[in-house]
């Protein structure tokens, strides 16, 4: 039966064989992994070719009228379990994706912007950073154990943090100007209550994001500090996010 997986990936099976492979795939995760590899091989044959220019607006117009289906990845949806637990998890992931979709889109789109070579030289470091960030956040979103903490910021704005394993993705928007020679500084709050600096936030239109990896923290906080930042907070945090 495994012998048919390459043919399945190539859409080269007749109906009877295809149904047999479908049954194998439903029962055997290792077969699904093998199929994924063959599909990657088949996909490698596709030569990227610019579609006719008119197609772009046709597709994007149509997309405005077509609703998305809301369900989990077809082959990895958790098996229905007794009680509502399974459904609740899927629901949570979907909700999380919706809520965080815009933030990841912004980061990923910034990384994906096409620029002429000369300018690319100057921005390539920044783009690499953004790419890395987008990839990491997308991974964090996929982690079923990740959590999102959210709170209003004293003085205006809202902050949230996505926590997955030891990684934290901080996001804030609507922050007022911190004042002359002042900056917002981000802190990681440790399990023992100690804080360590995660750097000064770069504010753009009142919004900022920051990815902190291997933080070993249980929460984050923001305080207003002198422009260069402080070693430890010197003012009361304007927002604290902790589990």
């Amino acid at each position: 039966m495994w012998d048919l997986l390459p043919g399945y990936a190539l859409d080269a099976l007749d109906d009877a064989d295809r149904r047999a492979v479908d049954r194998l795939l439903a029962a055997d995760p290792a077969a699904r992994r093998a199929l994924d590899e063959y599909r990657a091989v088949v996909a490698a044959f596709a030569v990227e070719t610019e579609p006719p220019a008119a197609l772009r607006s046709r597709v994007l117009d149509q997309v405005r009228d077509v609703p998305q289906v809301q369900d989990a990845p077809a082959d990895t949806a958790p098996a229905p379990s007794p009680g509502a637990a399974g459904g609740a998890v899927v629901d949570l992931v979907a909700r999380r994706r919706r809520r965080w979709g815009a933030a990841v889109a912004a980061v990923a789109a910034a990384a994906a912007i096409a620029v002429p070579t000369t300018i690319a030289v100057q921005v390539s470091a920044e783009r690499d950073r953004l790419r890395e960030e987008a990839a990491a956040v997308s991974e964090m979103l996929a982690d079923p154990d990740s959590a999102i903490l959210r709170a209003a910021v004293d003085g205006g704005g809202e902050a949230s943090v996505l926590v997955a394993d030891d990684d934290m993705f901080f996001q804030a928007e609507g922050l007022p100007d911190p004042g002359p020679d002042r900056a917002y500084q981000l802190w990681v709050v440790g399990a023992d209550g100690g804080v360590s600096s995660a750097g000064v936030l770069a504010l753009r239109d009142g919004a900022a994001t920051s990815l902190v990896r291997d933080s070993h923290g249980v929460g984050m906080a923001v305080s207003v500090e002198p422009a260069g930042g402080s070693a430890q907070p010197t003012t009361t945090p304007i927002v604290t996010l902790s589990a």
Binding site: L60, V63, R64, Q68, Q70, A94, R97, R98, W100, G101, A102, V104, A105, V107, A108, A109, A111, A112, I113, A114, V115, P116, T117, A120, L130, R131, A134, A135, V137, S138, L141, A142
Partner: peptide, 27 residues
Amino acid sequence: PPARTSADAVDALLVACVGGVPESFAP
């Protein structure tokens, strides 16, 4: 060469458009 979007960034774009506005599908 200029601007080939990395595979991971493309994956993230696709994940990000789930539940997003139709405009998020353009990239």
